[in-house]
Design a binder for these strands. Sequence first.
DNA 1: ACCTGTTATGATACGTTATATCATATCTAT
DNA 2: ATAGATATGATATAACGTATCATAACAGGT
Lengths: 147, 147
Amino acid sequence: MIRYIISIYHDGSMDKHKQPSDWHTKVLAVLRKNSGAVSAYEVLGELRVFNPKIAPPTVYRALNALAERGEVHRLESMNAYVASRSLKHQHAPVLSICDDCGRVEEYLAPQVISALSDITGQTGFTSTRQVIELHGRCISCRDRVTS
Amino acid sequence: MIRYIISIYHDGSMDKHKQPSDWHTKVLAVLRKNSGAVSAYEVLGELRVFNPKIAPPTVYRALNALAERGEVHRLESMNAYVASRSLKHQHAPVLSICDDCGRVEEYLAPQVISALSDITGQTGFTSTRQVIELHGRCISCRDRVTS
DNA sequence: ACCTGTTATGATACGTTATATCATATCTAT
DNA sequence: ATAGATATGATATAACGTATCATAACAGGT
């Protein structure tokens, strides 16, 4: 759906402006509906319900912008995305991914980050981005299944 | 062709171990020529020099097998691969990736792993695979460039 | 209001990464 | 030898991501 805003100028003339359709908001909404990883193309599929003409670059632009602002996390080991739960971290989160149910949790783990800093301190590597992802089984899946 | 190696133990028992296929060896050789990340299709390109008919699944099978045996690391954040330097780790390595020169280093960091265990201990998540990748700038690139 | 440079969006096409599938070949055990 | 399991070859296609160019919106100076 595309909505228009009518601008009326001093001289009485009018002008239609396409409202910047806020894909960012809609992409984020799709991710928030999910407790697990969602691929860019799954997002695309959902958004096509409203606008069949939306193309991959639109989704990727939104995802990248949201990721830069910390509102979504990219799951590097799955090529997928998840909405941030606790906004605005001081540092990179640890993400746990349940390979059974797909649920993703994020943890603030200063001790992990500081242990990583120790390494980089010793080696001279200057880190600008940290990817920390754990695969395994969440507690509910472990309890639920006989293993 | 599959060849086997027979191990004979003190007690006289024997064990057969599958020997790596030719492709495994060749894929590994390509990765070892490089100090940085190599994509599966770059490997494919190099192997096509010897056998123009080699197809993607062959390369991916070799890469997956090598990764399972710890001989290569998959760089999840780059969709690429790198040869292990120190074989047979006790636990997942920390991989540092220089975004300038592409060089990848691997570190054993028990403190990082144990900090991660603390999290999983508290939350009940059982982790079977850890992905820990640092992006940034290595010390030589930092020294080399005016920043 | 007009020009101008910058940034965002739309649209098309294509590039890159990875796997499903099925056929064939090889090994192991009996 | 034959059967079951495993590995390999080959084709096709799925899934993920981006380059590029055109158009539109915006902000600042005049």
